[in-house]
Amino acid sequence: MRHNLDTVDRIIRGVVGIWLIMVAFTALRVRRRTTAAIVGIAGIGLLQNTVTGFCGFNGLLGLDSTEERCDDC
Rank of each mutant, 00 (worst) to 15 (best):
M1Y: 12
M1D: 03
M1G: 11
M1A: 07
R2D: 13
R2I: 10
R2H: 13
R2N: 15
H3L: 07
H3R: 13
H3K: 05
N4S: 06
N4Q: 12
L5K: 00
L5G: 03
L5F: 13
L5H: 11
D6C: 15
D6Q: 06
D6Y: 11
T7R: 07
T7V: 13
V8T: 14
V8Y: 01
V8N: 12
D9Q: 14
R13V: 06
R13C: 03
G14I: 05
G14Y: 01
G14Q: 01
G14A: 12
G17K: 08
I18A: 04
I18C: 03
I18D: 00
I18H: 01
W19R: 02
L20S: 06
I21N: 00
V23Y: 10
A24M: 08
F25C: 14
F25K: 13
T26E: 08
A27G: 11
A27W: 05
R29V: 08
R29N: 10
R29Y: 09
V30E: 06
R31A: 12
R31E: 11
R33H: 04
T34G: 03
T35Y: 07
A36T: 09
A36C: 03
A36I: 04
A37E: 10
A37H: 01
I38M: 08
I38P: 08
I38L: 13
V39R: 03
G40L: 11
I41T: 14
I41C: 06
I41P: 02
A42S: 15
A42F: 12
A42Q: 07
I44N: 00
I44F: 08
G45A: 01
G45S: 09
L46M: 14
L46R: 09
L47H: 12
Q48I: 05
Q48T: 14
N49Y: 03
T50M: 04
T50H: 04
V51N: 12
T52Y: 03
F54V: 02
F54W: 11
C55H: 08
C55V: 11
G56E: 15
G56A: 15
G56I: 11
G56C: 13
F57V: 13
F57M: 06
F57E: 07
N58R: 14
G59H: 10
G59L: 02
G59S: 04
L60P: 02
G62E: 09
G62S: 10
G62L: 03
L63C: 02
L63R: 15
D64L: 01
D64M: 13
D64Q: 06
D64T: 11
D64H: 02
D64G: 00
D64N: 14
S65T: 14
S65H: 10
S65V: 00
S65L: 04
E67T: 05
E67R: 15
E67F: 05
E68R: 02
E68S: 04
E68N: 02
